[in-house]
Amino acid sequence: EPEARKIVEKLINNGLSPEDVKRWAEKNNNPEVKKAAEEYQKR
């Protein structure tokens, strides 16, 4: 999901860690963003 990846990169560029992004995604019920954050961590 390229859109989710863009969101993850934007949040990380704004100073969030991938863990923060995953928590944000869970709080906002956004499994695509959570998955993208996990993939981002593996890179």
Results as ranks from 00 to 15, higher is better:
residue 2 P to Q: 15
residue 23 R to S: 08
residue 1 E to L: 12
residue 39 E to K: 05
residue 22 K to S: 06
residue 2 P to T: 15
residue 32 E to K: 06
residue 27 K to M: 13
residue 41 Q to L: 13
residue 11 L to K: 01
residue 25 A to I: 02
residue 25 A to M: 02
residue 25 A to R: 00
residue 1 E to F: 10
residue 43 R to F: 13
residue 6 K to M: 12
residue 16 L to F: 13
residue 30 N to L: 15
residue 10 K to S: 12
residue 37 A to R: 00
residue 16 L to A: 06
residue 24 W to L: 03
residue 29 N to W: 04
residue 23 R to N: 09
residue 28 N to C: 09
residue 1 E to T: 11
residue 37 A to E: 01
residue 7 I to G: 01
residue 13 N to D: 10
residue 41 Q to P: 04
residue 5 R to L: 14
residue 28 N to I: 09
residue 7 I to T: 07
residue 30 N to M: 15
residue 1 E to S: 12
residue 30 N to I: 10
residue 12 I to Y: 04
residue 14 N to M: 15
residue 34 K to V: 13
residue 26 E to D: 11
residue 15 G to D: 03
residue 24 W to D: 01
residue 22 K to R: 09
residue 2 P to A: 15
residue 12 I to L: 11
residue 14 N to K: 14
residue 43 R to I: 13
residue 37 A to P: 00
residue 15 G to S: 03
residue 18 P to T: 08
residue 32 E to Q: 12
residue 20 D to T: 04
residue 23 R to M: 11
residue 41 Q to W: 07
residue 3 E to Y: 08
residue 33 V to D: 01
residue 27 K to I: 13
residue 28 N to A: 08
residue 23 R to H: 08
residue 18 P to K: 04
residue 34 K to I: 13
residue 14 N to E: 15
residue 1 E to D: 14
residue 9 E to I: 12
residue 24 W to R: 01
residue 39 E to T: 06
residue 16 L to D: 02
residue 38 E to N: 05
residue 4 A to L: 05
residue 37 A to L: 13
residue 6 K to F: 09
residue 11 L to A: 04
residue 6 K to H: 11
residue 29 N to D: 09
residue 23 R to K: 11
residue 43 R to E: 14
residue 23 R to G: 05
residue 6 K to V: 10
residue 4 A to Q: 03
residue 3 E to R: 07
residue 33 V to F: 05
residue 13 N to H: 11
residue 7 I to Y: 07
residue 11 L to R: 00
residue 19 E to Q: 07
residue 18 P to W: 14
residue 28 N to K: 04
residue 38 E to K: 04
residue 18 P to V: 15
residue 31 P to S: 09
residue 24 W to V: 01
residue 31 P to M: 12
residue 13 N to W: 09
residue 19 E to A: 08
residue 34 K to Y: 15
residue 34 K to G: 10
residue 8 V to G: 00
residue 35 K to H: 09
residue 7 I to D: 02
residue 10 K to G: 11
residue 13 N to K: 14
residue 29 N to S: 07
residue 6 K to C: 11
residue 29 N to P: 02
residue 20 D to S: 05
residue 2 P to V: 15
residue 39 E to L: 09
residue 34 K to N: 05
residue 21 V to T: 00
residue 2 P to W: 15
residue 39 E to F: 06
residue 3 E to S: 12
residue 35 K to Y: 08
residue 12 I to T: 02
residue 1 E to K: 11
residue 37 A to I: 12
residue 7 I to V: 08
residue 28 N to E: 08
residue 30 N to C: 07
residue 42 K to G: 09
residue 8 V to R: 00
residue 30 N to T: 04
residue 17 S to E: 04
residue 37 A to Y: 05
residue 24 W to G: 01
residue 19 E to M: 06
residue 21 V to N: 00
residue 22 K to Q: 10
residue 21 V to D: 01
residue 20 D to G: 06
residue 23 R to I: 12
residue 26 E to K: 04
residue 32 E to V: 07
residue 6 K to Y: 12
residue 15 G to Y: 02
residue 13 N to Y: 10
residue 1 E to Y: 12
residue 13 N to F: 11
residue 26 E to W: 03
residue 40 Y to W: 14
residue 32 E to G: 10
residue 35 K to I: 09
residue 10 K to L: 14
residue 9 E to W: 11
residue 41 Q to T: 09
residue 28 N to F: 10
residue 16 L to H: 05
residue 38 E to W: 05
residue 43 R to H: 13
residue 32 E to F: 10
residue 11 L to Y: 05
residue 4 A to K: 01
residue 11 L to I: 02
residue 7 I to M: 08
residue 7 I to A: 04
residue 18 P to H: 06
residue 32 E to W: 11
residue 35 K to G: 04
residue 26 E to I: 11
residue 36 A to G: 02
residue 38 E to V: 06
residue 10 K to N: 12
residue 16 L to W: 15
residue 30 N to Q: 14
residue 22 K to C: 07
residue 30 N to S: 11
residue 30 N to P: 00
residue 36 A to F: 10
residue 32 E to Y: 11
residue 4 A to I: 07
residue 7 I to S: 02
residue 2 P to N: 14
residue 26 E to F: 03
residue 3 E to F: 07
residue 21 V to C: 09
residue 42 K to S: 11
residue 17 S to Y: 03
residue 35 K to W: 09
residue 17 S to D: 07
residue 5 R to H: 14
residue 17 S to G: 05
residue 19 E to D: 11
residue 22 K to M: 15
residue 7 I to P: 02
residue 29 N to V: 04
residue 41 Q to H: 08
residue 16 L to I: 06
residue 25 A to N: 00
residue 31 P to E: 11
residue 8 V to L: 13
residue 22 K to W: 09
residue 3 E to T: 10
residue 18 P to I: 15
residue 1 E to M: 14
residue 20 D to V: 04
residue 11 L to Q: 02
residue 37 A to S: 03
residue 29 N to G: 11
residue 35 K to M: 08
residue 26 E to N: 05
residue 35 K to L: 10
residue 4 A to Y: 08
residue 27 K to R: 12
residue 39 E to I: 07
residue 2 P to L: 15
residue 29 N to H: 11
residue 35 K to V: 08
residue 42 K to V: 11
residue 21 V to W: 01
residue 4 A to S: 06
residue 29 N to T: 04
residue 18 P to Y: 15
residue 19 E to S: 06
residue 5 R to E: 12
residue 15 G to I: 04
residue 42 K to H: 11
residue 43 R to A: 13
residue 8 V to T: 03
residue 19 E to W: 05
residue 12 I to C: 07
residue 6 K to W: 12
residue 16 L to P: 00
residue 24 W to Q: 01
residue 39 E to H: 06
residue 14 N to Y: 12
residue 35 K to S: 08
residue 28 N to Y: 11
residue 8 V to Q: 00
residue 18 P to L: 14
residue 39 E to W: 08
residue 36 A to T: 04
residue 27 K to F: 09
residue 38 E to C: 03
residue 40 Y to G: 01
residue 36 A to P: 00
residue 20 D to I: 03
residue 36 A to L: 12
residue 20 D to R: 04
residue 5 R to N: 12
residue 13 N to L: 13
residue 30 N to H: 13
residue 34 K to C: 08
residue 14 N to S: 15
residue 32 E to R: 06
residue 3 E to H: 08
residue 22 K to F: 11
residue 9 E to C: 09
residue 10 K to R: 13
residue 19 E to N: 07
residue 18 P to R: 04
residue 6 K to T: 11
residue 7 I to R: 04
residue 23 R to P: 00
residue 26 E to T: 06
residue 13 N to R: 14
residue 28 N to M: 11
residue 23 R to V: 13
residue 26 E to P: 00
residue 31 P to H: 09
residue 10 K to M: 15
residue 19 E to V: 05
residue 36 A to N: 02
residue 40 Y to R: 02
residue 2 P to K: 15
residue 34 K to R: 12
residue 31 P to N: 08
residue 33 V to Q: 00
residue 27 K to T: 10
residue 23 R to T: 10
